[in-house]
């Protein structure tokens, strides 16, 4: 047998060697992506942690790189904790709101829509999930403005008094919807809604039709079937969706900047600490709030079966 070192036979030998040494093949395939993720992303997370042990020199405005717990001390002030509580409450409200809106559409798509219609629904829900997050937030500034379409519509219906009552309510109101906590709630719910619809839809899709028939055969009324069969099986889907709505609300700073009464949220506080204030160590320490709240939340959600429904 003549051995020519043409490029083809060299390729043959390389692929033969890779076939015989699966570990080498694995190392070659995984090396570069892992280097990127561990090097860039893992390294950044470590940088984030160490940054939080630095401190800001108040006089020079530069970052002092000697390790200290000073920044962590600054983190747990009453005002910062109230920001965290405020953000978590908004996350809860948004999660409940989007679950209520998501359920009927998911239920309808699974129970009554034909396969073609279901495919159309799917695309119509996916498009907003992927597209132009910033533009979609911005669109609500146009909609909720005092001279905008919503006020115009309410005015045509002569329902001004309802809107004014909502806006004068303490805590949620403001000079106009685009500058109120109520407006923020609407926009948060709008933006994260597709993240709730998809897992709820997936959970409902997995409820076997025979369960519903069995329930009816055993004499349950539709409402009873809903309460004792469909609802418990939908809960993992809602829990899975709530992971997204929760996590995204905790980290967002775009919505509170564009919509609302400029009262701080966790994301907004992080953003302004690193930007205007130039206090990167405190911004880094502040990410502790979303990470810990998400950690607790993931633990609870896992017990509700969220990971099986993802």
């Amino acid at each position: 047998m003549v051995t020519e070192t043409t490029s083809a036979s060299r390729l043959d030998r390389i692929s033969g060697a890779l076939h015989r040494h699966p570990r080498l093949r694995l190392a070659l395939l995984l090396g570069l992506p892992l280097l990127w993720l561990v090097g860039v992303y893992g390294g950044s997370l470590i940088a984030l942690l160490s940054q939080s042990f630095f401190s800001l020199d108040d006089f020079s405005g530069t970052i002092d790189r000697s390790l200290t717990l000073e920044t962590w001390g600054d983190l747990f002030t009453d005002s910062n904790i109230s920001i965290a509580i405020r953000t978590a409450s908004m996350a809860v409200a948004v999660t409940i709101g989007s679950a209520i809106i998501a359920f009927p559409i998911a239920y309808y798509a699974v129970r009554y829509a034909g396969p073609r219609l279901r495919a159309v629904f799917f695309v119509l829900i996916l498009i907003p999930l992927w597209s132009s997050y910033l533009v979609r937030v911005y669109s609500w500034k146009l909609i909720l403005a005092r001279e905008g379409i919503l006020f115009w519509f309410v005015d045509k219906l002569n329902l001004n008094f309802l809107l004014e009552a909502a806006l004068s309510a303490p805590g949620i109101g403001g000079p106009s919807l685009s500058a109120s906590a109520l407006g923020q709630f609407i926009v948060f719910t709008y933006i994260w809604l597709p993240y709730m619809i998809l897992p709820v839809h997936a959970a409902l899709e997995r409820v076997p039709k025979s369960y519903l028939e069995a329930s009816a055969d055993l004499g349950a009324k539709p409402l009873q079937t809903f309460r004792t069969v469909i609802w418990p099986l939908a809960i993992p889907g809602i829990a899975a969706g709530s992971i997204f709505t929760f996590s995204l609300t905790l980290g967002d700073y775009i919505i509170p900047t564009i919509i609302g009464d400029s009262s701080p949220f966790v994301g907004l506080a992080i953003y302004s600490y690193q930007g205007v204030a130039g206090n990167l160590p405190l911004a880094a320490a502040f990410t502790f709030f979303p990470i810990v709240i998400m950690g607790i939340y993931l633990y609870v959600a896992r017990r509700a079966g969220a990971f099986e429904a993802l």
Binding site: S44, S50, L250, G251, I270, T287
Partner: peptide, 11 residues
């Protein structure tokens, strides 16, 4: 959350 990734890279 995106902001964690953002601040981590910034750090």
């Amino acid at each position: 959350p995106g902001i964690v990734t953002g601040i981590a890279l910034r750090s």
